[in-house]
């Protein structure tokens, strides 16, 4: 299953090489042209010269860690790449650098902690990666300053058609885009796997500048907070309720015609859908929609519980339905179901 392999691949922002190679290998035969750029965005073109020109985007980077220093003892100091809650780091297994050197993030044994210490969050300044070496010299032989680390997690099926794993944000989106690329659409399809979304939408702006498409469709993964202790109005999305359409976030507001297009498509095809109920955070659409003289953009997301942690959950029906909805949107656009310039 491509989605599992994508989830297990290592690719923190700025270090997307492994994911890029995997996708290139998997998809090269399905495109007329495959290119990369200086930041590492990966582009597949299909139906060159057809109209309209549509860019479908999924970011391939994930949140991770970076080695920033050594202790004399050989322990590694790390910094976060992208947004991770410090409190999920303790007691995890990681792999570092090109050679995926294994390491663990330990924590002071609970027996040794004073009572007031036990109630406090363990911040990253008090956490280290332990490679099992005895000195800085040994550590320097295994990993370099600037090497990236990601959690080591095997993706596995669970529950009612769900998948447990890491990096579903946004390898689940990448897997949808990969499937789309294998299909035929009556338009110019530019499938773009972007880099560095998690550190500030860095790759997508560059890609949109290069392509200057008529429309951008961003496939994302978003938080599902439909768990015990949270109110329904704070769910953001609900696992199993289908793909979520973004109406607004910190970087983007969906134009009315985009909302109408997505909702009508879902209803026509009988695809369950929901609205993302959080108006903060951002996606690649934020930067794409502001590139050149403005590019019409839409965002649909796969709901994911415990996002940005090493143990997150997606529902495979949601994933299928996101694929169906994306396919439906592309077909609707190909059939002229969207006016591409001018709103008022």
């Amino acid at each position: 299953m491509l989605l599992k392999r994508l989830s297990e691949a290592s690719g923190a922002s700025g270090d997307e090489g492994e994911v890029r190679s995997l996708l290139k290998e998997e998809l090269a035969l399905h495109a007329e042209e495959v290119t990369t750029d200086a930041l590492g965005n990966l582009y597949f073109k299909k139906g060159i010269g057809r109209k309209p020109r549509v860019m479908v985007v999924a970011h391939m980077d994930e949140v991770g860690l970076m080695v920033v220093g050594y202790e004399k003892s050989g322990l590694l100091r790390v910094a976060k790449v992208g947004s991770i809650d410090d409190r999920v780091l303790a007691s995890k297994v990681v792999a570092i650098g090109k050679d995926r050197v294994p390491g663990v993030i330990g924590a002071k044994a609970v027996h040794l902690q004073k009572p007031d210490e036990r109630t406090k969050a363990i911040k990253i300044d008090n956490l280290y990666i332990d490679l099992g070496v005895r000195s800085q010299e040994e550590a320097e032989k295994l990993v370099k300053i600037g090497d990236y680390g990601t959690f080591t997690v095997t993706a596995r099926e669970a529950g009612d058609n769900c998948l447990i794993g890491k990096a579903f944000d946004n390898r689940a989106g990448c897997a949808v885009l990969a499937e789309l690329l294998k299909e035929e659409f009556a338009l110019e399809l530019n499938a773009v796997f972007t880099v560095q979304e998690e550190v500030g939408l860095r790759g997508a702006g560059v890609a949109a500048y290069r392509l200057h498409p008529d429309l951008a469709l961003v496939i994302e993964t978003t938080a599902a907070a439909d768990v015990v202790g949270s109110k329904e109005s704070a769910y953001v999305t609900k696992l199993g309720d289908g793909p979520a359409l973004t109406l607004m976030d910190s970087t983007y507001i969906a134009p009315q015609q985009i909302v109408d297009l997505v909702v009508e498509t879902a209803e026509k095809l009988n695809i369950p859908y929901q609205f993302r109920r959080l108006t903060t955070a951002g996606t690649d659409a934020g930067i794409i929609s502001q590139t050149h003289a403005g590019i019409l953009s839409a965002v649909i997301s796969i709901p994911c519980r415990y996002i940005h942690s090493p143990a997150s959950i997606i529902n495979l029906d949601d994933w299928q339905n996101t694929l169906r909805l994306a396919r439906g949107i592309l077909n609707a656009v190909a059939e002229g179901g969207l006016r591409l310039e001018g709103i008022a």
């Binding site: 134009p255 929609s289 403005g294 590019i295 591409l340 310039e341 001018g342 709103i343 008022a344």
Partner: peptide
Amino acid sequence: TYTDNMGNL
């Protein structure tokens, strides 16, 4: 007068 994708006039 004209408008654009972002809603400018």
